[in-house]
Simulated scan of single mutants.
Amino acid sequence: MKMRKVWASLAFESVYGFASRLIMIPLFQFLFLGILRLADFAYITNKNLLSFLSSPIAIVSLCVFAMLVSAYALVNII
C-alpha cells in the first residue's frame, strides 16, 4: 500500500515537472521577446547591450521578468 503512494507521488511529480516546463519555458521566451520589442530592439548584441540596459522600460520590464522567473523557480523547488 505504501509503495503505491510513493509511485503515484513520483508519477505526479514527473508529469507536473514536464508539463510546467513545457508551458513555462516558451512563455518566458515569449515574455522576453516582448520586452525586447517594447524597448524597440530586435535582438541584443554586444554593441547594443548598454543602450538596451540604459532604457528605463527595459530595466523595469527585466525586474518584473526576474521576479516572475524566480517565483516560478521557487514554486518548483517547493
Rank of each mutant, 00 (worst) to 15 (best):
M1G: 05
M1N: 11
K2C: 04
K2Y: 11
M3C: 00
R4L: 09
K5A: 06
K5P: 02
K5E: 08
V6C: 00
W7F: 12
A8P: 02
A8M: 08
S9M: 06
L10S: 06
A11I: 13
E13I: 12
E13Q: 05
S14Y: 10
S14D: 05
V15E: 01
V15I: 15
V15T: 09
Y16F: 13
F18H: 05
F18M: 12
F18R: 07
A19Y: 14
S20T: 13
S20Q: 11
S20I: 13
S20W: 13
S20M: 13
R21Q: 12
R21G: 13
L22C: 05
L22H: 12
I23L: 12
I23Q: 02
L27F: 14
F28T: 08
Q29S: 09
F30Q: 12
L31D: 09
L31F: 13
L31P: 01
L31N: 04
F32S: 02
F32C: 02
F32A: 06
L33C: 04
L33F: 15
L33K: 15
G34K: 04
G34N: 11
G34H: 13
I35Y: 08
I35K: 06
I35S: 04
I35D: 06
I35Q: 03
L36I: 07
R37M: 11
R37G: 04
L38C: 05
D40L: 00
F41S: 03
F41P: 01
A42E: 15
Y43A: 06
Y43P: 03
I44P: 05
I44Y: 06
I44Q: 05
T45V: 06
N46M: 08
N46I: 11
N46C: 04
K47F: 11
K47D: 15
K47A: 13
L49N: 09
L49K: 08
L49S: 08
L49D: 05
L50P: 03
L50D: 15
S51T: 15
F52N: 01
F52S: 05
F52D: 08
S54M: 10
S54T: 12
S55Q: 06
S55F: 03
S55T: 09
P56A: 01
I57K: 12
I57E: 11
I59D: 04
I59H: 03
I59L: 11
I59C: 00
V60P: 02
S61Q: 00
S61N: 02
L62N: 07
V64F: 09
F65Q: 03
A66H: 07
A66M: 10
M67P: 01
M67H: 06
M67D: 07
M67K: 08
V69C: 02
V69Q: 01
A71M: 10
A71H: 10
A71V: 12
Y72F: 12
Y72P: 04
Y72K: 03
Y72L: 00
Y72W: 14
A73I: 14
A73R: 08
L74Y: 14
L74F: 13
L74E: 08
V75D: 02
V75P: 01
V75H: 02
N76Y: 01
I77P: 01
I77L: 06
I78C: 00
I78Y: 10
